[in-house]
């Protein structure tokens, strides 16, 4: 981008980092919650009640609640370091590591395609804004954008 002068990074406070983390944790909680809700709604459907595979579907509903992967605390650790060290080289390094972690989270999420498939079936069967996959994917995109911006 020749001829364009880059603006200096805006100073960010601790609160903004905390919001980023909250955004990610909310997305995970909602995905789990929506899956549980869908399970209950699914088993209440008449077609399901009539289905001779009801016991299997009951076990399936139970299984769904465990589908959201456990992402761990690496992202929180990196953001915590970035929050403490600010714009120092250590802070920058922590942000870069946060970016790497976000990429890894995305790969973990993509490894569970059942979440996106279930989300589609759920919207069709019971309706509503159920977010098993899309909420998590959107949160990851937002976080990547934020962190990238702070690195500039």
């Amino acid at each position: 981008m020749l001829g364009v002068t880059l603006a200096p990074p805006k100073p960010r406070g601790a609160v903004s980092y905390a919001k980023l983390l909250l955004r990610w944790r909310d997305a995970q909680r909602r995905a789990n919650l929506d899956l549980a809700r869908f399970g209950q709604a699914l088993l209440a459907l008449e077609e399901i009640q009539r289905d001779p595979r009801l016991p299997q579907l009951q076990r399936a509903a139970a299984k769904m609640t465990g589908l959201v992967p456990k992402f761990g605390d690496d992202l929180a650790d990196h953001l915590d370091t970035a929050m403490t060290r600010g714009d120092s080289p250590d802070g920058k390094a922590a942000l870069r590591e946060a970016l790497g972690t976000l990429a890894a989270y995305r790969r973990v999420l993509d490894a569970v395609p059942a979440l996106a498939d279930l989300e589609a079936v759920a919207r069709r069967a019971v309706g509503g804004d159920l977010q098993f996959h899309s909420g998590l994917a959107a949160a990851l995109s937002d976080l990547e954008a934020e962190v990238t911006a702070r690195l500039r």
């Binding site: 699914l42 459907l45 077609e47 399901i48 009640q49 009539r50 289905d51 001779p52 595979r53 299997q56 579907l57 076990r59 399936a60 299984k63 769904m64 059942a114 498939d117 279930l118 079936v121 069967a125």
Partner: peptide
């Protein structure tokens, strides 16, 4: 209540890799 296989049930069982037939 007559028993019949639901489409939604079948889809969900398949998505989760579970047997989608009775027995």
């Amino acid at each position: 209540m007559s028993k019949s296989l639901s489409e939604t049930g079948t889809q969900i069982l398949r998505i989760l890799g579970l047997p989608d037939r009775p027995g």
